[in-house]
Nucleic acid binder design. Structure first.
Lengths: 359, 359
DNA sequence: GCTAGCACTCTTTTTCTTCGAGTGCTAATT
DNA sequence: AATTAGCACTCGAAGAAAAAGAGTGCTAGC
């Protein structure tokens, strides 16, 4: 299966030229680059075609890489590219303004990835199952209290509860000890009707409030588990010549705009190299992605969380540059979210988590 | 300026036929509908053209409505349409599953509006300036406490503060009284360096923490002011024949995907009727919207908040149906967010606000 | 094993033609 | 005076035919 050195050079040149121009590559164009005549290249190319690395759109056009050709290119031939200083600086700049909310951070990262790569991008974070570490109840007035829950992943959630009847300070305190006793360290699935009922039995005159706080707890845990998934720059597709056909563009855009569908099909089986995973055309599971490629990178989001960022584009994607950019961004995110080399400002050391919410 | 009854009928027919088919409308096609011969219609149409309500793409094509024609249609001619039961039910269904987070609600509403109308849609809420109503500090351990701020708009925000040194319970209590004394009822702009410094002076051995909590406070207020803006279904554009040209589609999609740009140009000067505002083609301020139309509706989001939902499409938009759907959704939102006729479940009465956050 | 040359293939581009929907005008009709 | 029928004319859209051009595969010579 090993290709001669010259075949490799030719395949590389075909892939890179096709990536750059979206035009089938002819033998003449390569003659200069490779250093032999076009006839020789023609012979080599026809062998590469027989081996399945190149394809001919029609008898007398140039050659185009096949999915297998791209695969070989990605795995063995392509050079690991470095970012220009300007690009690296742009990424660092953006990441430096760290966001408080995970959702928002994902949006920003998706945006960043998309503008850097010129392809549609997505960003997501996966969280491990969480539990509540402690509850606090803040008594506001006779009809109002706030529940604050500190989760194992160090997020804080809260809820303002407004009652149609009044409660005493002591009742809220009771509620607090009850929940700290029964609902801490408990995961999603472990909150059963039984647990709620037994807590209600123990609750005395505050039993009516147990259900409310319990459902809040379940929501917290569910929300902590849900992975925020953001897609950005879908319209970038339209600048790619392969999507000049509005129907194709529409189909793919619909697909990628729906985060949940995209999410399902992402963990496609594909070799992972240096934290990067590339799925090319037909390697993708989703029908909609069969003529497209996906490049994704994973990052360490701290607290046992793992995140992914990725890019969707035509199979004729600039893998080398996209891979470099994704790696860089992923590394930056790992550093930002989980890294030990945090910057020195007071702000960074002190402020770890913050919570916001509105009905 | 008043048109004869027959001219009105002809203009209406032209607009509606063009909306339906995207094809210029000829005299023959209307002859049946209007009840006179094509020659008569030709005469009428040429007068309507002279008046500026119709246009001719070229000498010998049919007629197409001009922006002025659409305007007249929207203001006077179009019939207020009713939703089908199925549509109304679909909207009610979706809205019934109310979301806790404003951001998320906006996303859902954008999505809903877009799928109902088949056009790209946006949703946003505008909030009045807020202040903190009260602070609570939860002492977690020697290195950790949580700040909880209840805002005037009844949102609750919180932040987990992790310290590189230790504090006593009493110090946190001091901090609490300090902030409740100095930082409640204070808006965004009123938090000055002076205020922070004078608080620090009064803070004794906790002065180092004042800056942290103060900056948190400012973030809360800033976040409360920022209007979440969501755009959904941008890819719907591609199904419109006027956007079969990928360059046009790309330009407009870029524009509408950028919420902030869209937001700036929306409060365009346009007459508002029944809570609806329609801007047609050149009436739009943004260059990118000059061949498009925007229909927006506003709703009451409670707590003095006003929200907007809207739809972007070609000037050849189905104004009548879009207007009906937007009104319905806006009314539903008003009811949901500000209405007095809230549903009866315990859950709804008790649970008003909830907050979530993560670094 | 490489290269030059050449006939052949097949798409793309261009040009030319045809077709037809729709108009505007005029003259006849009500 | 308003409406209608009739007709010549315009102008884009669609189609056919022709020309151009890029690239191949093959053969023969180096």
């Amino acid at each position: 299966m090993d290709l001669s050195e010259r075949k490799k050079r030719i395949l590389t040149a075909v892939v890179e030229s096709y990536i750059a121009t979206a035009e089938p590559v002819g033998s003449k164009a390569l003659a200069g680059q490779i250093g032999c005549s076009s006839a020789t290249i023609r012979n080599e190319m026809s062998e590469l075609t027989a081996m399945g690395y190149l394809e001919q759109p029609h008898t007398s056009a140039g050659r185009v890489p096949s999915p297998a050709g791209y695969r070989l290119y990605v795995n063995e031939l392509m050079e690991r590219q470095k970012l220009s200083e300007a690009e690296a600086a742009a990424i660092n700049d953006k990441l430096a303004k760290k966001q408080r909310q995970l959702d928002q951070l994902m949006s920003e990262v998706g945006q960043l990835t998309s503008t850097m790569t010129q392809y549609p991008a997505y960003a997501m974070a996966v969280r491990p199952p969480a539990a509540v570490k402690r509850f606090d109840f803040i008594y506001v007035d006779a009809n109002t209290f706030i529940v604050v829950a500190l989760l194992t992943d160090n997020t804080v959630k809260n809820k303002l509860v407004h009652l149609p009847f009044s409660v005493h300070q002591e009742q809220v305190t009771t509620l607090s000890s009850l929940f700290n006793a029964n609902f801490t360290g408990v995961t999603d699935q472990e909150i059963t009707g039984d647990l709620i009922r037994s807590t209600e039995r123990a609750a005395g005159d505050t039993y009516g409030l147990v259900a409310v706080v319990a459902s809040f707890t379940m929501e917290c845990l569910a929300a902590a588990k849900a992975a925020p998934m953001r897609v950005a720059g879908a319209s970038q597709l339209l600048s790619q010549p392969e999507f000049r056909d509005p129907d194709k563009a529409h189909a793919l855009m619909n697909f990628i705009s729906d985060g949940s569908r995209l999410m399902n099909d992402l963990p496609a089986v594909a070799p992972e190299q240096n934290g990067l995973r590339v799925t090319i055309g037909p390697e993708n599971l989703a029908e909609e992605l069969k003529d497209s490629s996906v490049v994704m990178a994973s990052y360490d989001a701290g607290d046992g969380m793992r995140g992914y960022i990725g890019v969707v584009g035509p199979t004729r994607m600039d893998y080398s540059s996209v891979a470099a950019k994704l790696s860089y961004i992923a590394a930056g995110l790992s550093r930002l979210l989980a890294g030990s080399d945090a910057p020195a400002g007071l702000d960074n050391k002190l402020v770890l988590k913050e919570s916001e919410h509105h009905e």
